[in-house]
Design a binder for these strands. Structure first.
Lengths: 208, 208
DNA sequence: CTTGAAAATGAACATTGTTCAAGAAGAATC
DNA sequence: GATTCTTCTTGAACAATGTTCATTTTCAAG
C-alpha cells in the first residue's frame, strides 16, 4: 500500500461528486431558501441516489453545515480583501463588504445564522471559530483608531460594533420587516459607523 | 338569530381550547426550540385530535404565527412599560427591557425572527406592523434628545439604533456564537447606547 | 481473473405535516 | 323533548420527507 496520497479514479469521482452536491445544495438554498432544500431534490439534481448523499455527509444537517462552512469562508475572504492601509476606510469597507455579501447571498447568510441543529446536538466548533474570526476583523483597524484604549476593551468594542452592523443589515434586508431600501441602507450604514466612531472619540482627521 | 355576539357554550370551549393549544405550543417552543415543535405533541398535550389543531389554525404555520404574534405583543407591552419621563433613561430602559425579554424568552424571539413561511407565502401584515411599532418606540425619546434634527432623520436613526441593539443582543445571546456573558452584555449594551448618543451629539447633561 | 474492500443503490421504514369522510355535539325549530 | 340542521371533532389514511441497510456494483490489489 502506498502511503503517499495518490488520486485514484475512485477518489477523483468522489471529490467531484461531493463538490457537485454542495454546489447544488448551495444554489437551492440561495434561490429558494433553506426550508425548501430536500434530500431527494439534491440527489436527483446530482443524478445519484439518496444514499450517496448520506454516505457523503452523514445526514442532512451535515450537508447544510458544509454549505454554511463555505459561506462563512467566502464571507471571511471577502472581508479580508478589504484594503487595510487606511483604518477608517477599512472599517467602512468592512461594513460595506458585509452589506454587499448579505445583499448578494441573503439566503446563504440566513442559513448560517438561523439553522438550528436537530435535538440538542452542539453547533460545530469549527464554524463557530470561523464566525468569531470574521467578527474579529474589525479589531485591527479599531486598535489603530483607538491607540489609547485598553486592548481588551477594543476587542469587546469590535465584536459589539460588528454585531450592531450585523443587526442593521440583517433586519434592514429583511424585506418582511423594517424594509430599508438597499441603496439607502448602504448610506445609513456608513453614517452609523461614523456616528459610533465619533462617540468613541475618533475625529475624521485623526488618522494613524 | 341573534346579532349580538353572545358567548355560547360552544364558543367558550372553543376559546378555552384555543388558548390551551397556544399555551402548549409556546411552552414547547420556549423550552425546546421551534424545530422540536410537532403537531402530534401539541394535540396529545391538549388531549384533542390532530384535526382540531388544523380546524383552529388552518395549518401548522398558523399555530406558530399565532404564538409569534403574542410574542411580539408581549415584547411591545414590556417596552411600553418603560418610564418615559426622562428621555435618556428611557432609551437605556428600552435597550435593557429588550435584553431582559430576549434573555428570558430567547427561543420565542428566535421563532419570531427566524421562522420562514412555506413556499413563498407572504409574511402576515399584522405581525410585520407590530414589529415596526415596537421598533419605533425609540423614536419619541430620540426626538426629545435631538430636537434640532429633521424628524425624518430621527425616524431612520431610531430604527437603525434598534436594529443595532437587536444585533448586539441576538448575537450576544447566541451561546453558540460570540457568547458574551449576559451580565456583561447588559453593561456593554448601556455603554453602546451612550457611545452612540455621544456620536449623535447628545451630552450626558443635555436633558429636555 | 479472482477476490476483498469500498461505494452506490433504492426499496423499505420512520417521522411528521395534511386531508377528509364519518360521527358526535350542540343549537335551532317545532 | 324530539327533530333537524349546522358545526365541530375525530383519527385513519395520505403525502412529503429524512433515514437506514441489505444487496449489488465498482474497482484496485494480488
Amino acid at each position: 500500500m502506498n502511503i503517499v496520497q495518490e488520486e485514484s479514479r475512485r477518489d477523483r469521482k468522489k471529490i467531484q461528486r461531493r463538490t457537485l452536491l454542495i454546489e447544488i445544495a448551495r444554489r437551492s438554498i440561495a434561490t429558494k431558501g433553506l426550508r425548501s432544500l430536500k434530500v431527494r431534490d439534491v440527489a436527483e439534481a446530482a443524478a445519484c441516489s439518496i444514499g450517496s448523499v448520506y454516505n457523503e455527509f452523514g445526514d442532512f444537517d451535515g450537508l447544510i453545515l458544509t454549505v454554511n462552512r463555505e459561506t462563512v469562508q467566502a464571507l471571511t475572504a471577502r472581508l479580508k480583501a478589504v484594503p487595510a492601509d487606511d483604518a477608517l476606510r477599512q472599517l467602512h469597507g468592512l461594513a460595506d463588504a458585509y452589506l454587499g455579501f448579505a445583499t448578494e447571498h441573503a439566503n446563504l447568510l440566513r442559513s448560517l445564522f438561523e439553522h438550528r441543529m436537530e435535538d440538542d446536538r452542539p453547533f460545530p466548533e469549527d464554524i463557530l471559530a470561523m464566525v468569531m474570526d470574521a467578527f474579529a476583523l474589525m479589531h485591527a483597524p479599531l486598535v489603530r483608531l483607538l491607540p489609547d484604549r485598553d486592548p481588551n476593551d477594543v476587542a469587546l468594542l469590535s465584536r459589539e460594533m460588528f454585531s450592531a452592523v450585523h443587526g442593521i443589515i440583517s433586519l434592514g434586508l429583511e424585506e418582511r420587516m423594517v424594509a430599508v431600501p438597499p441603496e439607502q441602507l448602504r448610506e445609513r450604514l456608513a453614517q452609523f459607523v461614523d456616528t459610533h466612531l465619533a462617540g468613541l472619540g475618533v475625529t475624521p482627521g485623526s488618522q494613524v
